[in-house]
Design a protein around this nucleic acid. Structure first.
Lengths: 191, 191
DNA sequence: AAAAGATTGTGATTTTTATCACAACTGAAT
DNA sequence: ATTCAGTTGTGATAAAAATCACAATCTTTT
């Protein structure tokens, strides 16, 4: 099993981690392979994990009156979860699925609580990932408040061009909160 | 000093807390009184605290091309902070000020780290408040993605009517991301 | 390579929201 | 009670975005 991405991601979260600690954290994670479109967390399930993307990407969305609305895309080296479901132990109203053929590392919090409770490094790592996700969530929240759809597209063009290359226009439109046609026109600079 | 709100808020965060622990946590907080419009956290300052509102409310906003845009209102019994600034130790781009004459309880994280480091109950309390804020941030983020301006107004009408009573229409419009006039029309059900 | 299916681009039209201008209302200060 | 500053309501118009319809393009399968 090639755990290079996992090890890099662990080191980025805990910068002063020794090799032994990285080994320990690697042993907390289990890997899973998903085909494009396969669901990792379904509506109604309780989310009990953090997902680290190794290859491919995850799409987080929910159904609004029958229509899927995208909330987030998570690429290699980043984490996805439904923190609300994790913390409240309530069923998820969000769905997380593979946007491409995807490999994820799963940090199952129940397994970790059970097996690694006596390892403060593991608990600290989980807490740091939580903090990362927290800050990202606040930034994401502000991103939608601070920019108009057109500005959001321009921002992504500059700061996350990979998203535009790997995610279809329709999916991006749903993420930005504009009609597919409008995004097509933004892209062509007709707008 | 009347610390009833503070004690209630502490107990809500840590439900199994003993009286001695509540006393300890109360001793972590300092109180501050703000006149309407007075600034608690300014742009460019490093945020080092959690603020618990005792009376009045706090308004969190930022300047977008010279115009104030509201991100949040925090009422009695709830917490405000700029978690991004706290965690990254970078200057805040948000401003937190009193929307009415306001009394807050300040949990200064530097003072707490220094004086209460040996008290795991205090550290746990801070962590729980962080979690609360995290979940609230994610919900807030989704709130803006999930609803149109009109739906957002209707949602607040149902779930947070106090906000409509205590915050002016113009301020709410800035929060909902619509023009003042549009909100006036939504309110009159012309829209 | 052809066919089928999905995605994207584009014009026409409708709907929604912003902007401008100004009147009406509200509340505090004199 | 009057004035003044700030806030809100409303019509007219402009701008932005959604919706509809369909053609063009790209992908996948056979």
């Amino acid at each position: 099993m090639d755990d290079a991405t996992l090890r890099t991601a662990i080191r980025q979260v805990s910068k002063t981690t020794t090799e032994e600690e990285v080994d320990l954290l690697v042993s907390c994670a289990i890997t899973r392979t998903l085909k494009k479109g396969e669901i990792l967390l379904n509506e109604g399930e309780n989310c009990r994990s953090f997902y680290l993307v190794d290859q491919g990407y995850l799409r987080t969305y929910y159904y609004k009156t029958g229509v899927a609305v995208n909330l987030n895309f998570t690429f290699e080296g980043s984490y996805a979860t439904n923190i609300k479901s994790v913390k409240s132990k309530q069923p998820s109203d969000l769905i997380i699925e593979a946007g491409e053929n995807t490999v994820v590392w799963i940090f199952d919090l129940d397994i970790i609580a059970e097996k690694f409770d006596s390892h403060p490094q593991v608990i600290l790592f989980i807490r740091r990932v939580s903090t990362l996700l927290f800050v990202a969530s606040e930034e994401n929240s502000n991103f939608f408040k601070m920019y108009t759809p057109t500005e959001r597209y321009r921002y992504i063009e500059k700061n996350n061009p990979m998203l535009l290359q790997r995610v279809s226009l329709s999916q991006i439109a749903s993420y930005l909160g504009v009609a597919r046609e409008t995004l097509s026109r933004i892209r062509r600079k007709n707008i």
